[in-house]
């Protein structure tokens, strides 16, 4: 196995172009698991930990741009106010050691339906910035996932960053797991309520072949929420929203949980996330 270790971003892109089969590795919290279990035997590993550009974040017009190599720990410590939903999700990732190493870029690279960051990115309407020697493109995260562990990223591309609106809405994240840490979620749900645009964003994890949006639920809730009065959300609206989220999921039965339970739990999580987000529009913690 070859071990490729570019010193900067330009070299990383060149190496990736020359070795399209090389598996990028940053924190290694997904890649090393696959190697350990002999599920992956890549011809080459492309180590991105020396590429310092990937660990920066800053604003880019109306967007907040976060380098693909920013760890969960830094999202929690440095960006909790700017990406509140993602920061909440980050707190549930693995263990402290894994949060110190794992990155959102890696989560997007694996494109697992259970990736903890994905629902929050979907709810926030994030963009994924992909780069290659051919150029750079920004793909809405809603179009990024194409199947289980598959995405629109081409073999010569690397994930440079993700972007979210610089002024976040009220965001929440909730998940059900078989334990509190170091676990693959049974299902997870992220919500973003943007009072300025009166739009609703959702993201569902671990309940379909890819992370999913509940578009019908979003449209329903955007139309029904008392944006003007900020009054209480009618019980029936919350319940219907939950149902629509549950029915948007495409879960399977597996050792972690049944499809029925996942739909039900998503409905409960959605209803609760709505209550939290509506009553605490700051969202940030």
């Amino acid at each position: 196995m070859e071990f490729l270790q570019p010193a900067d971003w330009a070299e990383a892109l060149a190496v990736k172009a020359a070795h399209p089969d090389a598996l990028p590795i940053a924190g290694g919290t997904d890649v090393m698991v696959d190697l350990n279990f002999d599920r992956a035997r890549p011809g080459a590993l492309l180590d991105l930990t020396r590429v310092t550009d990937l660990t920066d974040w800053g604003t880019d017009g109306d967007w907040l741009r976060v380098g693909a190599g920013v760890t969960y720990r830094r999202l929690i410590d440095e960006l909790a106010g700017r990406v509140p939903g993602l920061a909440l999700a980050s707190r549930t990732v693995g263990s402290p050691q894994i949060r110190n190493r794992g990155t959102v870029g890696g989560n997007l690279g694996s494109a697992s339906p259970a990736g903890d960051a994905h629902p929050a990115l979907l709810a926030a309407g994030a963009l994924v910035e992909l780069a290659s020697v051919r150029g750079t493109r920004r793909v809405p995260v809603t179009e990024y996932f194409t199947g289980p562990k598959r995405s629109v990223r081409t073999p010569d591309e690397l994930i440079a960053a993700f972007l979210v609106p610089a002024r976040p809405g009220a965001e929440q994240f909730a998940k059900v797991g078989t334990r509190n840490a170091m676990v693959i979620a049974v299902c997870s749900f992220a919500l973003s309520l943007d009072a300025a645009t009166r739009t609703v964003g959702t993201g569902i994890g671990s309940a379909g072949p890819t992370p999913l949006r509940a578009t019908e639920a979003e449209a329903f809730l955007a139309a029904e929420l008392p944006w003007e009065t900020r009054g209480a959300v009618p019980e029936s609206v919350a319940a219907r929203f939950g149902e629509l989220v549950g029915s948007a999921a495409r879960p399977i039965d597996d050792v972690r949980g049944s499809a029925d339970y996942r739909r039900h739990a998503l409905a409960v999580l959605a209803r609760r996330a709505l209550a939290w987000a509506w009553t605490d529009p700051g969202g940030a913690v």
Partner: peptide
Amino acid sequence: LMTGTLVDYTLPTAAD
């Protein structure tokens, strides 16, 4: 055996 890793065989952590 479907629970052949410590992700599927869920030992509790301090957080639990």
